[in-house]
Every structure is written in C-alpha cells, then in structure tokens.
C-alpha cells in the first residue's frame, strides 16, 4: 500500500509538474531511510518512476540517510554539504544521486505527508493518513473522484508486496 501511494504520488507530481525524467532514464536508485522502515528502489524509465521493494539487479546508486536529513535535502539543502558532514551515505554513481536530488527539489510535494504512512503502527491511523494523502492529490487532480476511488480500492483489497508471500509447495 505504501509503495502504491508513493509511486502514485511521485508519478502524479512528475506528470503535473512536467518534470523531465530523461536525465535519470534507465537508472535504478536504492533509497533507504535509516530511522524509518523505508527501503525502496526507484526504477526510472519511460518517463515515469516505478517503486519496487526488492530486486536482484544492482542499483546504479544506493542512498541512505536519516529522515530529518532527507527532509532538509528536500527543502533545498546542498547534497555536497550533507555528504561532507557524513549525514548521507552514497554508494555508486554520485551524479545519479545528484540528479535525483535535483528532481526531488523541483517537485512541489509535501513528502512528510507521504512518508508519514511509513511511521504509523495502527492500521486506522495509516488509513487516515493515506486517505488524507489521496484527498490532497484528489484536490489537485482534474478527476478528483477517480483519485479517491483509486485510494479506497487499494485500502479495501489490502495489497501486500511480494516478499511477504510464503510459497505453498504441497
């Protein structure tokens, strides 16, 4: 559900903000927040971002940082300064990381709102946050009813990502 919401939010913002993803084309960025259960891969391709939980492929760059650093980065903090202060760990192509940061700083998104879904323990709390997020997207969307319906559908069918599945081999 969280991946779904994150992917929806990012692609919505990329489309409505007319953000050029070409510089990140075919790049895979592993992104983890140290103090939140958020560890995802952003696969940038075909002018959109897919949010994938696990992959056998090597990413172009691994970015690991604390949530507060992330929000600072998002609000315009300089990547090089944060690297110098050891507040952010980057393995791999730093240029790709810089491109992602540039992109995130371009979009007008209340990311704390999106990421707050990862912090809640109580389902109802999560649902409320997610619904709030969809409401927010819906308010900006040209088709608000559709955005709300998408969010509610996802809540009702409780999607879970693949690595939780246990194989039945009878």
């Amino acid at each position: 559900m969280q991946h779904f919401a994150l992917e929806q939010a990012l692609n919505y913002l990329i489309q409505t903000g007319e953000i050029d993803l070409k510089p990140l084309d075919n790049k895979t960025i592993r992104f983890s927040l140290q103090d939140l259960p958020l560890d995802v891969n952003f696969v940038c391709t075909n002018d959109r971002i897919f949010v994938i939980s696990d992959t056998n492929r090597n990413s172009d760059v691994d970015i690991s940082l604390g949530a507060s650093v992330f929000f600072a980065l998002f609000k315009g903090e300089d990547l090089t300064d944060l690297l110098r202060q050891d507040k952010i760990v980057i393995h791999g192509d730093v240029k790709t990381a810089q491109l992602l940061v540039d992109l995130l700083q371009t979009v007008d998104i209340d990311l704390e709102e999106v990421l707050s879904q990862y912090t809640g323990d109580i389902v109802a709390h999560k649902a409320g946050k997610i619904a709030k997020n969809f409401k927010k997207i819906a308010q900006k969307s040209s088709n608000p009813l559709d955005a709300i319906k998408d969010g509610l559908s996802a809540l009702l069918i409780t999607p879970t990502v693949s690595k939780l599945y246990k194989k039945d081999r009878h």
Binding site: N26, S53, T158, V161, S162
Partner: peptide, 22 residues
C-alpha cells in the same frame, strides 16, 4: 523482464504481477 514484483490482493486470492522491461 528486468524487474518483476507482485502484490497480493485480498489475502493472495488474487495477485498483480508487474514486470518492467529494461
């Protein structure tokens, strides 16, 4: 496909597999 991930829906009665060509 370079990536594939599935989401179990309604407890796994149905699954959505998503493959991405790279």
């Amino acid at each position: 496909f370079g990536f594939c991930e599935y989401h179990n829906l309604s407890g796994g009665i149905v699954a959505l597999h998503k493959g991405i060509k790279v």
